[in-house]
Design a protein around this nucleic acid. Structure first.
Length: 926
DNA sequence: ACGTAGACTTGTAGCAACGTTA
DNA sequence: TAACGTTGCTACAAGTCTACGT
């Protein structure tokens, strides 16, 4: 699909002509849009030099340390050290001016200086009014932490050994003997119920009859679910956690179920323009310690480097396999390379054709070199050498409809600007926002500014937007009624318009742009009880937008005549292509980035997982260290220890400070006293609104010292006070960095999620057909989603769907009954009874009837299974963890080992996003 | 040392496309 | 073929964390 473009864009235009098929994906988008306005604020623009000709290739392929960058971060940090930050949030009274040393407070009865005033005022209301966007589920069970950690000698380090006695305490009442073994498992999982049981249950679930279908878990908060079942003598089952455990060679075969499956050759859908710095090769050749930073390990202060940090080593792979693998991976990488080069050449040549001025940098050979470069991930590091794109596309201007709304029953004529905003409000009639006073209040404030003080409309209550609402509905209906040809034509037209914005050329490689559409104006839909919900999000104009582009690349045409971009930068230390200030909160920015399938994103994704894998090597010591500090006299240290424990065990988020003009949600460091209720002898009941105002409810058994520490932290505080008053995320992360280079709180989530998946897959996958294996995968995925508290709202039609299914099952059961009677009669040579509606039935042989009975049974079983799955997952969102937390290499390797087509697990987008993981060694373990 | 600007990741809702069923 | 249900994908909000300026 050739794209024609405006004159200024030739550079990109034409590039695509020959290339479309290779596009990683197809795009269909629709977006409505509207007109613009302005906004604000200038950023200091520093265009840092981007002279460097260092090509990715150099670092990328040659140096196998994809992790280098990650390391750099670590390095930087450790030396620079994050300084503990105090609340940006304590704007009120006490806090700021206070001469009190922040860290010294919390005398009994006092509000901690940190966020005190806020804490109090919010506390009471926030908790009570907590507006759970999602339906929280009640926690009914309490987890038993009883499982014992098991030693995994491979990961033991001298210090591990030393600390062993401490480890004991990880799990309440547990003995430490086994602890090590489990170090590599997610605490949360360990704590939770006997995962074996859970698994078995899950698998068994499919076999259960419909009556068994129980959804009792639905009433349990996600986070609590896993933990709840008793973990029996579970620990022993976690042997699989051992990364080195050889995987059955038999399964290593690379055959994968489908043509496009994982194999070494990449399916065309996966064709990525630029091979992700193949650090994928890391998996087989790189040794962990080097991951991030060569110095990193040695610089780790408290935790000695693990003697055995290589996670995957060819040693575990049979030679034949190794050769095969290396060949194939070589092959694939060379394949990729050449493909890449081809692409690049294509791109490069069209590029040249189109823009002679750019020839210099678009030189073929340069391109091919650049594709190999290791994108540096460290901040301040060069992310690209050449960057060409066409800017962003704006929503179309507002088209007034002229439909009058009513005020006190009478039609009111509005100006187009007023009408536009009125329409935004009208269309929200069916949403929950209409029940929120804050939403209406904020809307009214902003709309009134447009109306003017003396407008006939003087209050919102007397406004009737129904005519506008109805008009919108009818428009929608018209759209629905369009013939498929019309729809298709419209789609094509849109695609044509957008085509040129869809791609960027990064170092000569065509990459998809993520969000190239400027956000249309609308009413802000904050989540939870966001104080700014309903405010008018004004239209963004070109002069709100800063463009980032290569020095030699042509500056994108400003698509709105007479206007111009706010600023042009050439900053190759960042990955954004454009940004503007968030019209709701000018302190924030909206960025245009490359799509998830781009190698820049893939690169950082990979680094993220490598860092999490590195944690695996440190986790034993880290756990031992914090366990030791549970009783530390230094209260800051003690709080750090307990917080780290909660983050590790419950996969809590770090919990940055928040401003008053944001929804009142918390994470670990910002937990309030009221969010944690101790239940003797050693349980904690957690209840708070987390990110996106999603309710987190969980009751967990903790180690006694933790329990006691919490009691201590709560002593003499008000419900709204900070539980960890000596702590904030800067301090916490600074501490974590001392334990492992680059370690931050969020790494624990990735680590726990991925290790859980890896464990469960390897423990629970049995011989069987693909469908059964997928069940195992989904079950593991579900466990991870529960650990991470990834909820979704129950679909509106859920109960209707369930009762429909029940009805159908009942009907089938009735049919079955009848069939059985007929079968019985047939065997005795009698004719079938008349059907319920009095009609005569055909005379069938007993064999035929038996067959029918069997068929009906199968149907019923399938339906029951579907029903269970549906019920089971009605509040659990599996996608988020798949996209963000589960190392795709675990999945890919598992698919290879078990001959499951990767497409059964990853959809097209995920395949593109995880292209970098596709040629992983089948033996890969997280 | 601290506060915050800035950049990037994570997260859910909701719509559109697609598939299935009656 | 329309209705219904599922899945994929986009939109954009809301987190995390680092770097930088004072």
């Amino acid at each position: 699909m050739a794209v024609e473009a405006s004159d200024t864009q030739h550079m990109l235009d034409g590039l695509y002509d020959d290339d479309d098929d290779d596009g990683p994906v197809t795009f269909k988008r629709s977006t409505t849009s509207k007109v613009n306005q302005t906004c604000s604020e200038v950023r200091k623009s520093t265009s840092r030099n981007h002279d460097g000709q260092s090509y990715r290739q150099t670092s990328d392929v040659r140096t196998s340390n994809g992790q280098g960058s990650g390391l750099q971060k670590g390095r930087r940090v450790s030396s620079g050290m994050v300084s503990p930050t105090k609340s940006s949030k304590a704007p009120t009274s006490i806090a700021q001016g206070s001469s009190l040393p922040k860290d010294k407070i919390v005398p009994s009865g006092m509000v901690s200086p940190k966020k005190s005033s806020q804490g109090i005022s919010r506390a009471s209301s926030s908790h009570v009014n907590a507006y759970p966007v999602k339906s929280p589920i009640e926690n009914t069970k309490s987890p038993s932490l009883g499982d014992k950690p098991k030693p995994s000698p491979e990961w033991k380090t001298p210090s591990d050994v030393k600390e062993e006695n401490n480890c004991t305490r990880h799990l309440t009442g547990d003995n430490c003997e086994d602890s090590e073994d489990e170090d590599n498992r997610a605490l949360s999982v360990r704590l939770k119920t006997n995962s074996n049981n859970a698994n078995r249950e899950a698998v068994a679930v499919l076999k259960k009859s419909s009556e068994d279908f129980d959804d009792d878990e639905d009433d349990i908060p996600l986070s609590a679910r896993l933990k709840n079942s008793n973990l029996g003598p579970s620990s022993s089952k976690y042997d699989d956690a051992d990364p080195k455990k050889p995987i059955s060679k038999v399964q290593k075969g690379l055959k994968v179920g489908s043509s496009a499956s994982i194999k070494q050759e990449r399916p065309s859908t996966l064709s990525v323009k630029r091979p992700l710095d193949n650090k994928a090769s890391l998996h087989s050749s790189i040794k962990k310690p080097k991951l991030s930073n060569p110095d990193a390990l040695s610089s780790a202060k408290q935790v000695p480097m693990k003697p055995e940090s290589k996670v995957e080593d060819d040693d575990d792979v049979p030679i034949s396999q190794r050769m095969k693998l290396s060949t194939s991976s070589d092959k694939s990488s060379s394949l990729k390379k050449s493909k890449n080069v081809t692409n690049v050449n294509k791109a490069g040549s069209s590029f040249k054709k189109q823009a002679k001025t750019f020839k210099k940098s678009s030189n073929n050979s340069e391109y091919s070199k650049s594709t190999k470069l290791l994108p540096s991930s460290g901040d301040g590091q060069k992310k690209w050498t050449t960057l060409v794109h066409n800017g962003v596309i704006f929503p179309p201007p507002y088209q007034p409809h002229g439909v009058n709304m009513l005020y006190k029953g009478k039609p009111v004529v509005l100006t187009p600007e007023q009408e536009e905003v009125a329409t935004m409000f009208a269309v929200m009639r069916d949403t929950d926002y209409m029940q929120k006073d804050k939403f209406k209040e904020n809307f009214w404030t902003d709309w009134r500014k447009l109306l003017g003080k003396n407008h006939v409309i003087q209050n919102l209550n007397d406004c009737d937007f129904t005519p506008i609402y109805d008009w919108c509905q009818s428009e929608k209906e018209k759209k629905r009624q369009m013939s498929s040809e019309e729809k298709k034509a419209q789609k094509e037209e849109r695609a044509k318009l957008e085509e040129k914005y869809m791609w960027a050329i990064v170092d000569g490689v065509k990459e998809k742009v993520g969000n190239f559409r400027v956000e249309p104006p609308g009413l802000f839909r904050g989540r939870g009880e966001h104080p700014k919900m309903g405010k008018l999000k004004k239209r963004i104009c070109p002069n709100d937008i800063t463009i980032n582009i290569g020095k030699d690349a042509p500056i994108p045409n400003c698509p709105i005549p007479g206007e111009s971009w706010k600023d042009i930068r050439h900053d190759n230390t960042v990955t954004w292509l454009a940004f503007w200030s968030d019209p709701i909160n000018p302190k924030l920015f909206k960025y245009v980035f490359l799509a998830a399938s781009s190698s820049l994103k893939g690169q950082s994704d990979k680094e993220k997982y490598e860092k999490a894998r590195m944690l695996k090597g440190y986790i034993g010591n880290i756990r031992a260290a914090y366990t030791k500090d549970f009783t530390c006299k230094d209260i800051t240290k003690q709080q750090i220890a307990v917080a780290t424990y909660l983050i590790d065990k419950l996969a809590l988020r770090a919990g940055n400070e928040k401003d008053d003009d944001e929804a009142d949600t918390v994470g670990c460091c910002t937990l309030k006293v009221e969010n944690v209720t101790p239940e003797a002898p050693n349980k904690l009941q957690l209840s708070f609104l987390g990110k996106d105002s999603i309710k987190y409810e969980n009751t967990v058994e903790v180690e006694l010292p933790v329990y006691n520490a919490i009691l201590k932290f709560q002593k003499d505080k008000q419900p709204g006070d900070d539980l960890f008053d000596m702590l904030d995320t800067s301090k916490l992360n600074a501490h974590l960095k001392e334990l492992m280079p680059g370690l931050t709180a969020k790494v624990f989530r990735t680590f726990n999620a991925s290790i859980t998946l890896d464990d469960m897959l390897n423990k629970d996958t049995k011989d069987g057909d693909v469908a059964e294996k997928i069940v195992v995968y989904n079950h593991a995925n579900k466990q991870v989603a529960i650990i991470c508290n990834h909820q979704r709202s129950v679909s509106k039609s859920h109960s209707a769907q369930m009762s429909k299914l029940t009805e159908k099952i009942d009907e089938l059961q009735a049919v079955l009954k009848e069939l059985k009677v007929d079968l019985d009669r047939a065997r005795k040579g009698k004719p079938p009874l008349k059907s319920s509606d009095g009609k005569a039935k055909r005379n069938l042989t007993p064999e035929a009837l038996e067959k029918k009975v069997a068929q009906t049974n199968t149907k019923i079983e399938k339906m029951q299974r579907d029903m269970m799955t549906k019920e089971d997952l009605k509040t659990v969102a599996l996608g988020t963890s798949k996209i963000n937390y589960l190392d795709p290499r675990i999945t890919v390797a598992w698919c290879k080992r078990h001959e499951v087509p990767i497409e059964k697990i990853f959809n097209k987008s995920l395949l593109a996003k995880f292209a970098w993981a596709m040629d992983v060694d089948p033996d890969f373990r997280f």
